[in-house]
Every structure is written in structure tokens, then in C-alpha cells.
């Protein structure tokens, strides 16, 4: 080192100058980095805040959705119970018939047993084996009828219980004609029992070839009941204002198509105005006076038919009537 030459001032100047440039560059870099980072940090913060807001909104929406689902389930159950209320009179009427039979046949059977006892108290010469056998046969027939009508009442009660059940039913082969007929009668008698002035005619035209199809009977029953109730309601309303020549009529028809069956419910009521026909399947839409309809009947019917992969359509002419057509696939 001692042999080395002394450094000149130009070299030092160059070194200092280079040092200043490096220092300036590094400071510039750090300042730029800090500035751009701060800018990014603000963007990140904004994004972070927005994400947090979205998360909060998401939680609130999920909560609302849960509440909505719960409310929807409650409303569906309420609608079922309302239907059940409407059914009660019809059910009472339907049960009354078999009960009358049960009562009558059991009374007759009691009388026949008394007759049999009297016959058996007679002397051997007065007794007639033929008469005794006839009485026994009559009692046997009566008991069969009592049993038959008892089972009919039981099936009506079972149907009612199925209708009110909250949980989803299972699909089973169902005789649609029988189901439609049952619910048509229940609807008719129910309305009649509620309103003594109610008067309407109903006709059925069932296609016997449709056989049994796989549906949830209580759900399809609920749909049919809704349509029947609406049809009877509208014809009855029209009757109140129409001339005497007007015959309120509800027609229920079934048809077999290629891969589906069709249930047609036609009434000759006032029809549905064009401006509201698009809304009738919307939840809570009703034309009935406050307190008479929940506005969920057709909406639920629509959902039920869709859940069966079917279709429900409506055709209506103002002043002439309405036709609801349900198509259910044969699976």
C-alpha cells in the first residue's frame, strides 16, 4: 500500500458525485415505493372495507333468507290449515254419509238380532230354519256395509290428516279421477255448508284410461281443492249478479295424452281480466276481499305442479269463464 500513488482530487470529486447520485436514486426509489405502496394500501383498505361490508350484507341477507324461508314454511302451513278449515264442512258432510249408514245398519242389525232371539224362543215346531238363516244373512250383509262405510269414513279422516301434515309426502301411484272426484265433492259440500245461499252445479268427465300415476296425492289434492274452491267461488259470485237464466257450473275433466295426463277445471264465471292474468300465480296476489284469501293458493299450486315436473296453464275470457289446465307427466 505504501508504494501506491496518492489519489487525486478529481477521483474524489467523481466518487462524491457518484455517491450523491446513488443516494438520490435510492431516496427517489424509496419515496416512490412508499408513495405507490401507500396508494395501493389505500386501494387495499378500500377493497378490504368493501369486502367487509359485503360480508356483513351477506350475513344479513343469509339471515333474511333464513327468516324468509321460515316465514314461507309457516305461510304454507297456514295455507294448508286454511284449506283444512274450508274442507271441514265438506269433510263433515262426507263423513256424515258413512256415519248415517253405520248408524242405520247397526240399528237394523240390532232389530234383526232381536228378531233372531224371538225366533229362537219359539218352540221347535214354530221355528223356521229358513227365516233364521235369512236374518243371519241380513245381519252379515249389514255388518259388511257397516265395515265398508266405516272404512270410507276412516279414509276421509286419513286424507284430512295427510292434507294437514307439515312434512313433504311421497309419490305413490294415485287414481287421479278418484282424487279429483273426492276433492270436488269436499269442496262443493264445504262451500255449501259454509254458505247456505251457495248454489252451483258440477259435472265430471273422467277419462278412465288414465289409470294411476305417480304423484304426491295430498299435494295434488291441495292443488285440485284450490282450483275447485276458486271455480265454485267465481261462479257463485257471478250468480249473485247474473240473470236467473245463468247456470253456475264447474266442469272437471281428465284426459290422457301421449306421455302426460291433463286435468281440466273449467268454470263459467266472470273470467280473469287480461291485466291481472299474468299475476295470478304470484304469491299473495288475490282478488278476493280482505280476509277471504291469502293469495297463496295458486302460487303454491304452481310450485306443487312444477315440483311434479308438470305444467299449469290458464285460459280465460272475461265474462265467459276460466279454464285451468294441469299437465302431469306419466312417469
Amino acid at each position: 500500500m505504501n508504494n501506491l500513488l496518492q489519489i487525486n482530487s478529481t477521483d474524489v470529486t467523481v466518487f462524491v458525485f457518484a455517491g450523491i447520485i446513488v443516494l438520490a436514486l435510492l431516496f427517489g426509489f424509496i419515496m416512490y415505493f412508499l408513495f405507490s405502496y401507500r396508494h395501493k394500501q389505500k386501494d387495499f383498505q378500500l377493497l378490504h372495507d368493501q369486502k367487509q361490508q359485503i360480508d356483513v350484507q351477506k350475513i344479513e341477507l343469509e339471515k333474511t333468507l333464513r327468516e324468509l324461508k321460515s316465514t314461507q314454511a309457516q305461510l304454507i302451513q297456514q295455507e294448508k290449515m286454511a284449506n283444512l278449515g274450508e274442507l271441514t264442512a265438506g269433510v263433515a258432510h262426507e263423513i256424515q254419509n258413512p256415519l248415517n249408514f253405520v248408524n242405520n245398519f247397526s240399528e237394523v242389525s240390532n232389530e234383526l238380532i232381536e228378531e233372531l232371539k224371538t225366533e229362537r224362543q219359539k218352540t221347535e215346531s214354530e221355528r223356521s230354519a229358513g227365516t233364521e238363516n235369512d236374518i243371519i244373512n241380513d245381519i252379515e250383509q249389514n255388518l259388511q256395509k257397516i265395515n265398508y262405510h266405516g272404512k270410507r269414513a276412516e279414509s276421509i279422516v286419513k286424507g284430512m290428516l295427510q292434507h294437514s301434515r307439515a312434512n313433504a309426502g311421497v309419490k305413490e301411484p294415485t287414481d287421479i279421477n278418484k282424487l279429483a272426484d273426492e276433492y270436488l265433492r269436499l269442496s262443493f259440500h264445504g262451500l255449501r255448508a259454509k254458505d247456505k245461499s251457495f248454489n252451483a252445479d258440477f259435472k265430471t268427465d273422467f277419462d278412465e284410461s288414465i289409470g294411476k300415476i305417480n304423484v304426491i296425492p295430498q299435494d295434488i289434492g291441495r292443488v285440485l281443492l284450490n282450483l275447485f274452491n276458486n271455480a265454485f267461488y267465481t261462479v257463485n259470485e257471478k250468480r249473485k249478479s247474473a240473470s236467473d237464466s245463468y247456470l253456475p257450473t264447474v266442469l272437471v275433466q281428465t284426459k290422457k295424452l301421449n306421455s302426460a295426463i291433463e286435468i281440466i277445471v273449467r268454470d263459467n264465471g266472470d273470467g280473469i281480466p287480461k291485466k291481472i292474468i299474468e299475476k295470478i300465480f304470484q304469491p299473495f296476489f288475490t282478488t278476493k276481499p280482505t280476509g277471504q284469501g291469502t293469495g297463496l293458493g295458486l302460487s303454491l299450486s304452481y310450485d306443487i305442479i312444477k315440483a311434479h315436473s308438470g305444467e299449469i296453464k290458464v285460459e280465460s275470457k272475461e265474462g265467459e269463464g276460466t279454464t285451468f289446465i294441469i299437465q302431469l307427466p306419466i312417469l
Binding site: 500500500m1 508504494n3 501506491l4 500513488l5 496518492q6 489519489i7 487525486n8 477521483d11 474524489v12
Partner: peptide
Amino acid sequence: QVYNLKNPPMF
């Protein structure tokens, strides 16, 4: 500096 056979400054 060393390559040019000069004495590097103390500073």
C-alpha cells in the same frame, strides 16, 4: 484506485 496503483483515501 488499487487497480490504478493509487492509495485509496482514508475517508
